[in-house]
């Protein structure tokens, strides 16, 4: 297991200073005060990656990705009470996906039914400060399309039986989770200080190459405040990427090369082992 820990200490010293200047908390803050406070302060959120490009090799066996981020203008009292929650998501590139279901035909398990979905994220990794139900209500998650169970999966054939679509949508999520491509890490976001947080997301061994979108959602006492996003490009490492691209863009030359390589290996085998 390679721990490709990517770091960025997005230390926002100025915001920290502002937070310290905030008025001292009252002994028993009421709901009235909270509302006032909310009106006065507009919190923000920032995230950053130490590199916007990761190269993976053929023997890549998964890794942890660390994303650092900072809150802007947090209320020190709320922050001390742990009323801020952050959810960080890393969403892979999208592709159309066919979900197939097997059923028994003449005793054999054969693919019989299928459903195509458009724009399915190939991977979806999520980390949060606490259990999802403790952060906000299911309605908010649905509105934000936040969480593997809330991403909108668009079937190609919208006129299909809704029960079938629902069944295949559930199967799609289930298979993605089983394959380690849809993951959640509850408690994967830690506040290191009042402002600074660290999110740990997992990259599956079969993490898709392409442009991934990292997003952070800030909640204050169950209310969604702000979102920040950045991009991460995952590529196959130099040589392999070149071969992969070559195979797709110059498939004829690639085929000739594959044949030549096979003949060369066969010929070398004879010379090395000389059996006649």
């Amino acid at each position: 297991m390679r721990a490709a820990v990517l770091m960025l200490a997005a230390l926002l010293c100025t915001t920290a200073a502002v937070a310290q200047d905030a008025p001292p908390p009252q002994p028993v803050p009421g709901a009235e005060d909270d509302r006032q406070r909310a009106q006065q302060i507009q919190e923000g959120i920032q995230i950053g990656l130490s590199m916007d490009r990761i190269s993976i090799t053929a023997d890549f066996s998964g890794a942890q990705l660390t994303i650092f981020g900072a809150l802007e203008n947090p209320d020190s009292l709320l922050s001390r009470q742990g009323r801020y929650d952050v959810v960080v998501v890393l969403e892979g590139p999208t592709r159309p996906v066919v979900v197939r279901r097997k059923s028994r035909v003449l005793g054999m398990w054969i693919n019989t039914e299928s459903e195509t979905f458009l724009n399915v994220p190939m991977s979806y990794s999520i980390a949060s400060t606490r259990a999802f139900q403790d952060i906000t209500d299911p309605g908010s998650y649905r509105r934000l399309s936040l969480g593997a169970d809330n991403i909108h999966l668009q079937p190609a054939d919208v006129d299909d039986n809704p029960v079938t679509i629902e069944e295949f949508t559930a199967a799609l999520r289930d298979r993605k989770k089983a394959g380690g491509l849809f993951t959640d890490n509850i408690g994967g976001v830690h506040f290191l200080s009042q402002n600074l947080f660290r999110a740990t997301l997992s990259l599956a061994p079969s993490v898709p190459v392409g442009t991934h979108k990292a997003r952070a959602f800030l909640f204050r006492q169950g209310v969604f405040i702000k979102e920040a996003s950045t991009q991460l490009v995952i590529v196959k490492s130099g040589f392999e990427q070149a071969v992969f691209r070559f195979a797709n863009n110059h498939s004829f030359a690639y085929g000739v090369f594959a044949i030549g390589l096979a003949m060369l290996t066969g010929w070398l085998g004879r010379i090395v082992f000389k059996r006649d």
Partner: peptide
């Protein structure tokens, strides 16, 4: 393998690319 019930009856195929 053809006659044994698979672990999952569902399988995914991504279109437009192998990986």
């Amino acid at each position: 393998d053809l006659f044994v019930r698979p672990n999952s009856l569902y399988s995914l195929t991504s279109l437009g690319g192998l990986m």
